[in-house]
Structures are given as structure tokens and as C-alpha cells.
Design a protein around this nucleic acid. Structure first.
Length: 422
RNA sequence: GCGGGGGUGGCAGAGUGGUCUAAUGCGCCGGCCUGCUAAGCCGGUUCCAGCAAUGGAGCGCGAGUUCAAAUCUCGUCCCCCGCGCCA
């Protein structure tokens, strides 16, 4: 959430900033609803004051054994008015909060404004691999090797699911463990969080209320996590940290569940847009003054992981209009898949400044009192699209898949995935 | 799932309808004192509105009873102990 105080004192600044990301919520309306709430609250407070005074008089009268019926009658009337005024205040607060809870974070000045296509490529690493044959797509490779079973995944669950078998399943765990080991060596703390969260937690990271339709909800009201960012960022919700505890760096492997509502149609064969996928996520908690430095640091951790696999990728600074609600600035890592001849988003690395901290109420102590922390999150990395790029990049003329060197130790030294016997 | 106990400020912990203006202690911040440190003393240390004076709210969350609720009633969530079930 944005600081309501900032909106009050400098609505023009907020308006201009949010215009960069094409935000459809009117700041004028936020200011107006806030004023209406304030007016109603003032009336309610003055009535409460009156009742408190009367209550005090009643108490004194009773202690002095004087009659208090008239005062009680008057207090009853005030109490009725308070109920009416209170309902009005509540209604006004809901109206105001509805808007504020859906406002996105302020965008950083370094971010190109406007719609998605205004992105900036800030780095390219490696180059497109060349083949002396026509490279196949990942699903062709996977099926002919007998290590990808899309039809049975569809039978078991439906569209939007995949099933890896044998060496491909092991390749996915090799990736996950390669990521985990890298983060561990960097000194981060590993977390195994809950994969289901309550609504307060989903609100904290900004997934609720605006994006409820993107989340799976259980019959008893839990939400399946769309990313480990949700539980891990919320670890210190409603807590005050010591200044010396910051920064904190976490990583967590989890499956991620997304409805992908409104994204039907067969845009791409294979496993590209999924209801469930695996990801290792980095989450950093920092002091405000350190977050931009840590954002660049997180970016380079993500980049190093892809570089270790030897895959060609590019780093994209998202345009303001393409950034998530909580993000002040986001880099995407896009890894190249030669079979599809496409760059695929395999990581999204964001500085959420104090936007999530305000929703979660996570602060740290300073000499000037407690202040909101900054939160950052980034994939390090999401596996399916990386596997697409890896399979397509490392394919041989025979249709086998060479295992990148850094992954071989996680696969009992396997160097190449050959067809699996039935 | 059943039975019992509990949830109060940064922390510990008192408070069973109206002197609650939430005691007291610890921690932290500021000040005084001091050659320096410690001790001691004074003030501050939840949120909302306000430049402020001040006013309002707040005792897990929600509803109710009452002129008045941390305190009584109901619902709900969470934690602890015991029993049951279970990977």
C-alpha cells in the first residue's frame, strides 16, 4: 500500500507517478473518499466524546448517590447516534480502503514509463546457439526420448499440467538443487514454508484483494501459494525487527500454483503456461537505504545461475505498465530457447520498497522510532521455462540432451539423456 | 476430533463492569547530574485525526448486553497441556 499521508500531502506527485504505469484508479477519488471518511470520523469522535463525558457524570452521580436517570436517558440517545455515525464511518472507510488497497506501488524513476513494449534490454549474455540441423522444440525432444508425458498429465489433471519422467524428472531436481546449493553458498537462509496461506498473508504481498482470481482457494479458505514470495516475505508480518537483524536473505523451493485465469488458448505447445510449476525463490528484507543496492545484488545472483548453465539470456528492465502491483522496479531474466526461437521469462526480480511492509506491518527499530522495512523478491529460478531453454539448447543431432556440467553431479554423473527404454 | 488452560504495549506481567488516565518491572530513546562510565532522577516509548492544544480508538479477531466492557455473553482464529487419530 501507499502511504496515505503522502497521497494527502502530495496528490499531484502520486498522480503523475502512477500515470507512468497506466494506473486506472483516480487519485482525486482517493483524496475525496479520504476527506469524506475524515469528516465522518470527526463527527463520530465528537459524539463519543459527549458520551464519555456523560458516562463520567453518571459515574460521579452514582458515587454521590444522586439520581442519574436524566443523564442515562441522554446518554442512551447519544449512544444511538454513535451507532449511526459509526456505520457511516465504516462505510466511508471501506470505500476509501477499497481504492487504496488496489493502488500499485510508486514506480522508480529509472523505470521506462508506459506500456509493456517500452521495456529496456539492459544486458545480453552469451549468444544464440547455432546448429547444423534444425533444432527441435522441447516437447518433441521430450516425447521422443520418452521423458515427457503430456498426455498422461492431461489425463490425470488436465490442461496446464506436465509430467516429467525418469531422467527429465531428475534434471528438474538437479536444477533445483543446483540453485539451492548456490544460494546456500551465498550465505542465505533456507526456508521450507507452508504451501497454503491464509488471506492476511496473501494480502500482505499484494495478491489480495485485487488478484484473488489468480489464486486457487481451498474449501476451508486457504490459498495455494502462487510463489514462495508470499509465505517467505510474510515471515515477520506484524513484527518489529532489531536494526542489527537486517538485512535478511532467504531462499525457498516451493511449487507454485496459479489459475492463469483468462489465459486459455493454445499459444504454445509443451509446458509453458502452467497451473503448477516449481521455483526456487529469493526473498530479501532490508533497510530502506539498502534496498536498491540489494536489488542489483539479487539480479546478479539470478544471472549467475543461468550463466553457470551456459545458457544465452537477456536481462530486461520492465516498463512501468508491466510491473506487478507491489513492485517499484522489476528486472526479468529471459532465457533463450532455440527450438521455439523465443526468449522465455524465467525470473522476475523486484524491489517492492515499503509497499508490502506497510500491508504486512513489518518494521525495524531505529533511533528515530520504528520504520517500515523494504522487501525484495526474485526467482532464482523457475524451472519449467529454464528446462525448455536447456533442452532445446543442449540437444544433439540425434535428439539427445546433453546435461550441463554443473548439473551432472546431481544426476549420478549422467552426461547425456538418451531415449528411455519402455 | 475431544477435554482443560491461555491470547493485554518492544518484552515480561497485573488488572473479573465505572479512581483504567492499562499498574509494575525490563529494554530502548531523550534530558538532568557527572572529569568519564555506572548508579540515581525527570520525561518519552500502540494506532487514527490535528501545526498544536487536544480528541478518539485500542487488551487475538468479530458480534452482542450496558449510560459505561480488557473485565459479562456468543461466535471465530491462534497458542500451550492431556487424550485420540495419523505420514
Amino acid at each position: 500500500m501507499l502511504d496515505i499521508d503522502l497521497i494527502r500531502k502530495n496528490p499531484q506527485f502520486v498522480k503523475e507517478n502512477l500515470a507512468k504505469r497506466l494506473c486506472e484508479i483516480s487519485i482525486d477519488e482517493v483524496v475525496k473518499s479520504d476527506l469524506e471518511w475524515k469528516k465522518s470520523k470527526e463527527l463520530e469522535d465528537s459524539l463519543r466524546k459527549k458520551r464519555n463525558d456523560l458516562t463520567e457524570e453518571i459515574k460521579n452521580a452514582k458515587m454521590q448517590k444522586k439520581p442519574a436517570e436524566r443523564l442515562v436517558d441522554e446518554a442512551k440517545q447519544v449512544a444511538d447516534k454513535i451507532i449511526v455515525a459509526g456505520e457511516k464511518t465504516k462505510e466511508m472507510a471501506e470505500k476509501r480502503n477499497y481504492l487504496i488497497e488496489r493502488l500499485p506501488n510508486l514506480i522508480d524513476n529509472s523505470v521506462p514509463e508506459g506500456p509493456e513494449e517500452n521495456f529496456k534490454i539492459v544486458k545480453e549474455w552469451g549468444k544464440k546457439p547455432s546448429f547444423d540441423f534444425k533444432p527441435k522444440q522441447h516437447h518433441e525432444l521430450g516425447q521422443s526420448l520418452g521423458i515427457l508425458d503430456m498426455p498422461r498429465a492431461a489425463k490425470i489433471a488436465g490442461a496446464g499440467f506436465y509430467m516429467f519422467r525418469g531422467p527429465l524428472a531428475r534434471l528438474e531436481w538437479a536444477l533445483i538443487n543446483y540453485f539451492r546449493d548456490s544460494h546456500f553458498k551465498n550465505g542465505f537462509e533456507e526456508i521450507c514454508p507452508p504451501f497454503l496461506v491464509n488471506s492476511q498473508t496473501a494480502f500482505g504481498t499484494g495478491n489480495l484483494p485485487k488478484f484473488e482470481k489468480d489464486l486457487y482457494k481451498t474449501i476451508d479458505g486457504f490459498y495455494l501459494i502462487p510463489t514462495a514470495e508470499v509465505p517467505v516475505t510474510n515471515i515477520y508480518a506484524n513484527e518489529v525487527l532489531e536494526e542489527s537483524e537486517l538485512p535478511k536473505r532467504f531462499y525457498a523451493y516451493t511449487p507454485c500454483y496459479r489459475t492463469e485465469a483468462g489465459r486459455h488458448g493454445s499459444e504454445t505447445p509443451g509446458f509453458f503456461r502452467l497451473h503448477q510449476f516449481d521455483k526456487v525463490e529469493m526473498v530479501f528484507l532490508s533497510k530502506p537505504e539498502d534496498s536498491w543496492k540489494m536489488h542489483e545484488e539479487m539480479l546478479s545472483f539470478g544471472e549467475k545461475l543461468i550463466e553457470g548453465l551456459g545458457l544465452h539470456y537477456r536481462t530486461k528492465m520492465l516498463a512501468a505498465g508491466d510491473c506487478g502491483i507491489a513492485s517499484a522496479k522489476t528486472y526479468d531474466l529471459e532465457v533463450y530457447a532455440p527450438g521455439m526461437d523465443k526468449y522465455l521469462e524465467t525470473s522476475s526480480i523486484s524491489n517492492c520498497t515499503d509497499f508490502q511492509a506497510r500491508r504486512m506491518n513489518t518494521k525495524y527499530k531505529t533511533k528515530e522510532g520504528s520504520k517500515l522495512i523494504h522487501t525484495l523478491n526474485g526467482s532464482g529460478l523457475a524451472t519449467p521455462r529454464l528446462m525448455i531453454a536447456l533442452m532445446e539448447t543442449c540437444q544433439t543431432k540425434e535428439g539427445n540432451i546433453k546435461v550441463p556440467e554443473v548439473l551432472q553431479k546431481y544426476m549420478n554423473g549422467l552426461k547425456e539423456i538418451a531415449p528411455v527404454k519402455k
